[in-house]
Design a protein around this nucleic acid. Structure first.
Lengths: 215, 215, 215, 215
DNA sequence: GAGTAATCGAGACGGTACGTCTCGTCTTGTT
DNA sequence: AACAAGACGAGACGTACCGTCTCGATTACTC
């Protein structure tokens, strides 16, 4: 992902300001690590706060002092994984798209990512606060991949410059839903592998479609 | 959905054959109805077997006699909703696709559908049996919408006949993942509405892309 | 026990009178046998109607057609064991008493007897109908051992004839409570064996005490 | 009962030693009180852990944290009642025995005592751990009444000093089984009242018998 | 370097749902 | 009618987590 991005996912801050024993930064890291490990072993729905605490060598109180509940903890534990996604410069828009699709699929095929992502998305269907946290911690951050990709293609002359910024936004959202949706659906619902051949055919479909939108 | 489809989702059958009191068909229906009602009120993760039983006017034992656990029950309760999807004949492929996209979005915006679908998909990331049940009860059944749509477009002359049946299958799968994935992502992850304008732009993208695949 | 005693313990009779298929006598016997077997294996509190039915090769309905509940069934299944008790003629009152005490202890040390007897007595503390059934099926039948023993001792001249029949009854009850109570307490509460030495010392205590009552 | 006796019945202690929130002593007391109340209202076999918890204003978990099951809980709840038994000094052995017999009968006629005592004794026929708990919490504690009574009678010169301590123990056990057994059988099995007249006649029988043993 | 205040581990607490078990009744078709 | 089979409503079982609450014991800043 684009570097220099400020970390938005962090445990909620201590209330007041100054005095008293400061929170252990080691504990923070150990908890997030333990959460990911527990996700791998148990999956989202069987993960328990007590198990995470035990793995992290920490008391349950220490978890609840930082995160209000399991959902928020899991979002934060997983969000950092998405920061690894980067837009490679492979010389052409098509190659760049194929590269991102394969990266994204690789990420989704890791057990901790897929079980956590779908778990929190499922919870978010009934929990507005959680949905907001997912959007800010994960979705909006990924969307930059689309924006940067288009900008780079425009610099190469592969895509025309957008004139209407509103239309540009609409297209960003559409393309993002198509790319992320197709990969997620392929991996998690259809449960079929995303290999180079699939990535190539998907990219062909996508870029032809985008061309029709712009033209 | 295509009519005449046999119902595949049903509680597991009594073991032997003939003797003893037969299971109540009313109870079956009441339980599935109660499950959907409970999904609307509580969401997937807060739905409890006891609550479903109480709503259905049935003992908990009666639930467990038919379904091994909450996941399987919810899959069956929701699968029937997808049977409502139909491929309308609006005179052109583009109109047909727009129609199906809007129907699908409407279905996903119902609280019982979205919370249940994501809930069971999340569970299925750690449960192969559940994933298989979802595929047979939901995914494979929906895929016929793509097959029928292409056949109809070919009859109209909007699409060329496929020569290689393997390529046809691959394209069916790709198109299905793109359509279902984009709509699901739009509705559940991006949490933006699927209106006629979005459907039109998505269809434009999709059909241009399909044209490139075939041509 | 005294022979020629009419069997008082039997399943409740069919309601009306004549028509329809007659009840299976084999089932009656199989059920009582199965009840005793289940008592040995599981104890009173873990014995279940379904288990008894399965052991007897009979449907649960068949049990409930004959006995109102588990307590009544167990009383009947066990009562018959007490019919084995007999008053041997060993030539002297002391020897007769020792013999009966040892017989009774042997009976109580069988697992089916002890678990069943205490189980139903425990239930009877809250169930008048059950207490009545226990009294008629077990207690009153055993009491004849005391009556017969005294009569025989009087015939031998070991005990004086009672003049007041009311006093005789009172003494019968007292002696019965002392004998049965002491043996039951020794075996079930103190959990110590009733051997010949204990029987001799108990008999010495008892007969001296009886002498004081009569003299 | 003899005063100054240390309370031996208590919930199982927390495992380790020092850390963590200590167990609530109020909860302990409330649970034992609630258990006795539930015994009175429902009897042993219908008493449920959930009902006890509700009466005590305590969660079910709190019960299971202290007692492994209903039997152990009931033993502890009832054992304390037997501590009330005392050996009165009425000036003669006969009077003392009559007093204890009447006290014991009064205790056994209370519904919570009789239903609980027989209930746990019944269970103990299949449960060695429970039998051991009953012996240590109830039986052995009561036996001191016999020991103290004999010592006092010897001090008064009503009974000879025992020379052989083994014989003394054997007689203690025998007398205890006779006294406790007779009263329990009279009250719970024969279901007849223990009044002053019965106590007088029983004491006459017992003391004459004891005299024969010693002489 | 004494106080103060928030941290830490541990584990008990009141709740609630789980999935299993048994109860005693009922509904089938068969004998 | 009685029978075997087994579904049914009811509700207790003992376990597992939840998120909160005491405890006593550490830290760091502040005075």
């Amino acid at each position: 992902m684009v570097s220099g991005m400020p970390r938005s996912t962090c445990p909620e801050p201590p209330r007041k300001g100054r005095t008293g024993r400061p929170r252990s930064a080691e504990a923070d890291a150990a908890i997030l690590r333990a959460t990911r490990a527990s996700l791998v072993d148990l999956g989202f729905s069987k993960l328990t706060m007590a198990d995470v605490a035990a793995r992290a060598g920490v008391a349950k109180t220490t978890l609840y002092r930082r995160w209000a509940n399991k959902n928020e903890l899991v979002v934060d534990a997983v969000a950092v994984l998405f920061d690894e996604l980067e837009l490679p410069d492979r010389g052409s828009l098509a190659s760049d798209v194929e590269g991102v699709v394969l990266q994204f699929a690789t990420l989704l095929e890791q057990p901790e990512t897929k079980t956590a992502l779908m778990g929190v998305v499922a919870e978010s269907t009934c929990d507005d606060a959680l949905r907001a946290r997912i959007r800010s911690a994960i979705v909006e951050r990924q969307k930059r991949l689309v924006v940067d990709g288009r900008r780079r293609a425009q610099e190469r002359g592969e895509l025309p410059r957008e004139e209407d910024p509103r239309a540009a936004d609409r297209n960003t959202d559409l393309v993002f839903d198509v790319v992320a949706g197709a990969v997620v659906h392929r991996v998690l619902v259809s449960a079929e592998p995303v290999d180079e051949e699939w990535a190539r055919r998907f990219t062909l479909l996508l870029l032809s479609g985008i061309g029709a939108l712009s033209g």
